[in-house]
């Protein structure tokens, strides 16, 4: 197995919202090896973005409490490192692409300048060299007329173009890890595919590890090699995309897969998940999914742990766990 770029172990954290701590993540596990594209899937509020921001220590320090776990990036423990040393990684070793291209760029600075400052920050290039690098970076994300675009302001570009610029910025220092948080959610369907292809291609060319976050299992299926499913801040299932999609083991994953339009059989209606998302101010005892689970039984009043089903496929479900041990 190749070197792990990212290794998140037993990560639990909570936010302080109007005086009460809310448990956002509980015992999250996530590993990404060099050059690997891993998907993180879950509905909104499941803690996907929080996980991503935690990796770069971008969570608001005043309200965030880490109660357990560690995040290793290239062997360096992020959580115990100083702000300065983590700041060194941002943009240089860890690139970030956010969901909203419309608001992710500084509205009062030209595209070229924004890229220029990021490039200069992470390299020893002269002004002229950096200027040339701006061009090259824009070309690399397949922007047709970089010499025009670099003098434009964000509001003059379409959403897809802006997202390309954001990706160019994130990749400009050739980072070891690219975190893409719902990079295509705000875009038109046709543009979505282009952006996903672009990310995949760049990762391959540069050997970049990618953490692709999405609420859309379809996006993950087309782009990633592995996937981790998050529900209410807990990992419920993880494995190779092919395994997880073909034989989903956790009832929640099964429901997700069934709700995929192209996988659900033609003619049958799409399934929805009954019940409500749990209140995280008091994380219930036992399995977090139990209240909505059609297969729950007595054992589910205890918290399940991630259990290996086969080599890379794990699930946190008593119903499945019993099967694997047999």
């Amino acid at each position: 197995m190749s070197e792990l770029v990212l290794d998140i172990k037993d990560l639990s954290l909570s936010f302080l919202t109007s005086g009460t701590p809310v448990s956002i993540l509980k015992s999250v596990e996530l590993q990404i090896a060099a050059g690997e594209i891993v998907g993180l899937v879950g509905e909104s509020g499941s803690g996907k973005s929080v996980t991503a921001l935690a990796i770069s220590k971008l969570l608001p320090t005043q309200i965030t409490t880490f109660s357990s776990g560690s995040i290793y990036f290239n062997g360096m423990d992020i959580l115990t490192s100083s702000e300065e040393s983590v700041a060194q990684l941002r943009g240089k070793k860890i690139g970030f692409v956010f969901q909203e291209p419309m608001t992710a760029l500084n509205p009062t600075m030209t595209i070229g300048k924004q890229l220029f400052h990021v490039i200069r920050r992470h390299s020893d290039l002269s002004k002229e060299q950096a200027q040339a690098k701006v061009r090259a970076a824009l070309e690399e994300v397949l922007i047709a007329k970089p010499e025009i675009v670099e003098n434009q302001y964000p509001f003059q570009l379409s959403g897809g173009m802006r997202q390309r610029v954001v990706i160019a910025m994130a990749m400009s220092a050739n980072p070891a890890l690219l975190i893409a948080d719902e990079p295509t959610t705000a875009l038109d369907v046709t543009v979505q595919a282009e952006i996903l292809n672009l990310i995949g291609k760049l990762a391959k060319v540069h050997g970049t590890a990618v953490l692709l976050i999405s609420h859309d299992l379809g996006v993950i299926a087309n782009t990633c090699s592995k996937v981790t499913v998050l529900y209410a801040g807990e990992v419920v299932e993880t494995g190779k995309v092919s395994d997880v999609l073909r034989t989903p083991l956790h009832p929640y994953t099964q429901a997700l897969v069934k709700s995929l339009p192209d996988i659900a059989a033609r003619g049958s209606s799409l399934e929805t998940i009954a019940g409500e998302f749990p209140d995280l101010r008091k994380r219930p005892e036992g399995c977090i999914y139990a209240p909505r689970c059609p297969k729950k039984f007595d054992k589910c009043s205890e918290s399940p742990v991630l259990m290996k089903v086969d080599n890379e496929h794990s699930v946190a479900c008593w119903a499945q766990g019993s099967r694997s041990s047999s």
């Binding site: 770069s56 971008l58 700041a87 060194q88 990684l89 941002r90 943009g91 240089k92 860890i94 690139g95 970030f96 956010f98 909203e100 608001t103 992710a104 760029l105 500084n106 509205p107 009062t108 600075m109 400052h117 990021v118 920050r121 992470h122 954001v166 910025m169 994130a170």
Partner: peptide, 29 residues
């Protein structure tokens, strides 16, 4: 609290630069 400020931070830009060129520049309008 805007997205572009977070993007700037995630891209590792310096605090002083971010406050002046990202936040203040836009807050001035």
């Amino acid at each position: 609290s805007q997205d572009y400020y977070l993007t700037g931070r995630a891209n590792g830009l310096g605090k002083r630069f971010l406050v002046v060129r990202y936040a203040l520049r836009n807050a001035l309008i």
